[in-house]
Design a protein around this nucleic acid. Structure first.
Lengths: 243, 243
DNA sequence: GAGTGGTCTAGACCACAGC
DNA sequence: CTGTGGTCTAGACCACTCC
């Protein structure tokens, strides 16, 4: 029998109390120093256990006199496979969405951007960084890159990008491709999203197509504690049973 | 000016070396004890920095005489919005996929399962746990639940579920919905996927529909270092510009 | 002020994988 | 055997937030 590390045992014990429903979303777990007494370990070991639960998305932590460690509650769902903007999706379920342009201007294309948009490394591109708030919580950071001549699409950030292109440029967008990966917040995201270091995010890198050409490239980072992501696939999308 | 924690500064420094290309995928970073000397901090602080980079998906760590900390290489892409099975998608890009049924049998529906399949808590359901290997690496754990009478679909695990239902039951599947979240490996997943604790995974909970009825519910956990996930959305899926 | 989580130290020993 | 990462201790002080 392999030995079970203490921090794993502690995490299992707390996870069991959450999954059994003994601790419900919003409930507070014992303070770290209490857990130290309960399990007879050093505080770093308790923190390692809590770190893993936080990475799993089961708990949130707040500091201060009324802070503590809490069971995470279930966030609203955003549909990746709907073309309509986030704004409208949230309004349908009765939530407020606002956004704020953090920065925008011409920058030199880095490697990811230039290869996505078929440019040379260092070519000028128009970059916009947006933070979207759901019910006043910073929820999503979106950085998007377009060729300079498309700059005016940012006048319609409340719309889906697809419609913004159609209105401002007359360009017909017909497809987008999203790569979805998990990953912790970087320091920059940590600041704009106002989360502690190490928070788990859902990352999406998106290519928006007009025909076979990529006309926009964006990177989204979503706080999973304020928005879940859904993907819907219909049978008609593809005939699957051919050899 | 807020003070920058040492572990953040160390992580930033290493991240910069990776993103600049000074360290390429597969390259080895300095050993932890070397970094301790380089940055004049305790080893726990270096490890905290490396933990955050690991959570971001930038590095992998291996122990043993020839182990170390390595820059992660870029994994193949699986398309969530294609109905064809994982098996065929990988064969198209020249990779081997095998799978193994870890366990299967009748269990009592827990809360998630019963509410997804419209059953009562504790009702019997057929549960199958599968591990999928990509190029001999354990890549995906898939647990799926169906009503007992659909049990025979597991005879066709190499096919997409949609076709398995069609062949064995004559049931026409026409839609599926996936919820995508990030989250670290639990202890159970850690064992079956053979990853160290705290590894980031991409989690998908999937409902498979026949008409408005959910006929299968599955939970997938994907190792992002062996498979990336893509979502493709077409314009025709929805008319977006209505008020 | 007081109690919460966040950072950090300077060690120790363990587990693993090649040589 | 040796060098790698993994776990753990028993403290310390900091930063935040409400009272």
């Amino acid at each position: 029998m392999p030995r079970i590390p203490a921090y794993v045992a502690i995490a299992e014990s707390l996870r069991a109390r959450i999954e059994s429903g003994e601790l419900k979303p919003g409930d507070r777990l014992p303070a770290e120093r209490e857990l130290v007494d309960d399990f007879n370990v050093a505080r770093m070991t308790v923190r390692h256990a809590l770190d893993t639960l936080q990475m799993e998305g089961l708990i949130d932590r707040k500091r201060g006199r009324t802070g503590g460690t809490f069971v995470r509650s279930i966030p609203p769902v955003l549909d990746l496979t709907r073309i309509v903007g986030i704004d409208r999706q949230l309004r349908e379920i009765g939530l407020e969405q606002t956004h704020q342009v953090v920065q925008s201007g011409i920058v030199e294309a880095n490697h990811s951007v230039s290869s996505a948009l078929s440019l040379e490394l260092g070519d000028p591109v128009f970059r916009t960084e947006i933070v979207r708030y759901i019910a006043d919580n910073p929820a999503i950071v979106e950085v998007f890159y377009v060729a300079r001549e498309f700059e005016s699409v940012i006048e319609h950030l409340d719309l889906a990008l697809i419609d913004a292109f159609s209105i401002t440029m007359g360009t017909t967008v017909d497809r987008r491709e999203d790569l979805v990966t998990p990953g912790a917040a970087t320091d920059a995201e940590r600041k704009t999203l106002d989360v502690p270091g190490g928070t788990q995010l859902l990352r999406i890198t998106r290519k928006t197509f007009a025909g076979e050409e990529v006309i926009a490239y964006s990177e989204l980072a979503i706080r999973p504690d304020v928005a879940q992501v859904r993907v819907v696939t219909h049978r008609e999308d593809e005939t699957s049973l051919q050899p």
